[in-house]
Structure formats: structure tokens, C-alpha cells
């Protein structure tokens, strides 16, 4: 009826400890919270250490000397703790920002801009859902026109107000799915407590 697995008992203890906060803050909750933070920090430290060893140090030992470059750049990040050479830390940050920007701009333009606009032009306005979609796109776009003269015109002030309603519907839908996600997390924990620990759920 109840699990004999030590790991499950530990999991159940920490789940209940976190849930205890719903009644009021207490020392058991704080213990669970600090343990979680400690374990997370330790986990990421070990993960990072192994990544450096497996992905850079080991290949370097096998003759791929170019891996010395990311290692040096990584060490440069810590230079900010030494004021006289803190400028060195700008190099790795600049390289990371440049790489991420380049990767994002290249992919975003086609996938998230051109393709989305192309799909919008293919809408069939004789269908109600497509028509609503199109009105939403246009009115929301006008909501983000910040030129004062344009915003004060009667037509654009009306469309931007409609656009605001579309945005509110979108935010409402987003909040609704957020609640659904939180319920899923609760269900997951209850399935663990009453399925894996106390075996009440078949």
C-alpha cells in the first residue's frame, strides 16, 4: 500500500515540505527550499565541469588544439573580478552576443517574419475565422504605431483600440494555458504522492 523505495520517500518528504508553504511559511519549507537551491547549484556545477572536460579538455588532449580558444575565452570571463584586467571579460561576452545575434537574425527573418507574412497573405477572407485573423493582425499592428500624428487620427485610434482588445484576448488565452500548465504540475505531484508513494491511484 505504501512504497518501500527510499528515494520515493525522500521525494514525498520534499513534495510535502514544499506544499506546506500553502498553509504558512515554516522551517520544513525553508529546509526544502535551501536543499533544492543547494542541489541545483551543485548539479549545474558538476554538469558544467563535465562539459568542459568532455567537450574541450579531452579533445584538446587528443590533439584538437583549437579547443584552447574557448577555454581561454571562458577564463577571460573571470577577469572581471580583477579590476586591472577586467576589460578582458568583454571579449567572450562580445563573441557570445555576436554569435547568438547572427544565429537568431538569420533564422528569424525567414522563419518568423517572411513565412508568417506569407501565410497571412494566403488567408481566405470569405471564411470567418480567416477574416477575424486578418482583422486581428492589421488592428494589432496599428496598435504599435507610435507616431503621434498617426495615432491621433480617428481611423487609427479606432483600429488601435480594436487591436488592444485582440491583444487582451491573446493575453487571456495565454493566462488560461498558464493555469492549465500549473494544474498539470499539481497533477504530476499528486500522481507521485498518491501513485508512487501511497499507492491509492491505480
Amino acid at each position: 500500500m505504501i512504497s518501500s523505495d527510499f528515494g520515493v520517500w525522500v521525494g514525498a518528504f520534499f513534495t510535502l515540505a514544499i506544499f506546506s508553504y500553502l498553509f504558512k511559511g515554516n522551517i520544513v519549507f525553508e529546509f526544502a527550499e535551501h536543499t533544492f537551491i543547494g542541489f541545483s547549484a551543485a548539479h549545474f556545477f558538476v554538469e558544467g565541469y563535465h562539459n568542459i572536460i568532455n567537450m574541450a579538455v579531452r579533445p584538446m588532449q587528443e590533439g584538437q588544439v583549437s579547443w584552447i580558444i574557448p577555454i581561454i575565452l571562458g577564463v577571460f570571463l573571470f577577469a572581471r573580478y580583477v579590476p586591472s584586467i577586467s576589460w578582458l571579460s568583454r571579449f567572450p561576452v562580445a563573441i557570445m552576443v555576436a554569435i547568438v545575434s547572427a544565429a537568431q537574425i538569420r533564422g528569424t527573418l525567414h522563419a518568423e517574419f517572411v513565412s508568417q507574412i506569407a501565410a497571412t497573405t494566403e488567408l481566405n477572407i470569405l471564411e470567418l475565422s480567416d477574416l477575424i485573423f486578418l482583422i486581428g493582425v492589421v488592428t494589432v499592428a496599428t496598435y504599435f504605431l507610435y507616431l503621434k500624428r498617426l495615432r491621433e487620427s480617428r481611423v487609427l485610434s479606432a483600429t488601435s483600440r480594436i487591436g488592444r482588445y485582440f491583444l487582451m484576448v491573446a493575453f487571456g488565452a495565454s493566462l488560461g494555458t498558464t493555469v492549465m500548465g500549473r494544474y498539470s504540475l499539481l497533477i504530476g505531484r499528486l500522481q507521485f504522492l498518491f501513485g508512487d508513494w501511497i499507492k491509492l491511484i491505480k
Binding site: 508568417q116 501565410a119 494555458t177 498558464t178 492549465m180 494544474y183 498539470s184
Partner: peptide
């Protein structure tokens, strides 16, 4: 995707870039 992300993913399904979406636990 998680349910929270669904509203962000749906435009790519509507445009045909994704052929299907599995949203959250539902």
C-alpha cells in the same frame, strides 16, 4: 510544448510551418 507556450506556437501551425502541435497534458 507546455500549455503555457501554446499561444506562441499556434501561429506556426496556422501558417503551415508545423504540421501538428501536442499541447501540454491535454
Amino acid at each position: 510544448c507546455t500549455a503555457v507556450m501554446t499561444t506562441f506556437v499556434v501561429p506556426f501551425y496556422s501558417s503551415g510551418q508545423f504540421v501538428g502541435i501536442i499541447s501540454g497534458l491535454g
